[in-house]
């Protein structure tokens, strides 16, 4: 999966939970789920579960700890996909 495809997939996943449309429109690797997209923390759990379902992976709580940005999510997804 290319970097662009991965970002596009993550963008679709977070869409239902975002509260800042401008930040969503400009979503990039540097976008923060909480500070930029204003996703609340309960919905961040949803994002993680959706990522698990979409890529058929499991994210342990230790990996989840830093998963608060698009970049961090990409790193974890890539790592999990590589280990499959």
């Amino acid at each position: 999966m290319t970097k662009e495809d991965l970002i596009a997939t993550l963008k679709t996943i977070v869409q239902p939970y975002i509260q800042d449309e401008d930040a969503f429109d400009k979503l990039s690797e540097d976008t923060d789920f909480i500070n930029d997209l204003k996703i609340n923390s309960a919905n961040l759990v949803d994002v993680i579960l959706d990522v698990e379902d979409e890529f058929d992976i499991r994210i342990e709580n230790e990996d989840m700890e830093q998963m608060t940005s698009v970049k961090a999510a990409m790193d974890i997804v890539n790592e999990k996909l590589a280990a499959k």
Partner: peptide, 16 residues
């Protein structure tokens, strides 16, 4: 109007 559905699979295990 709770923020998320805790009934979805694995939600409780992730959080509690």
């Amino acid at each position: 109007q709770s923020p998320s559905s805790w009934k979805r699979p694995r939600f409780l295990e992730k959080v509690f």
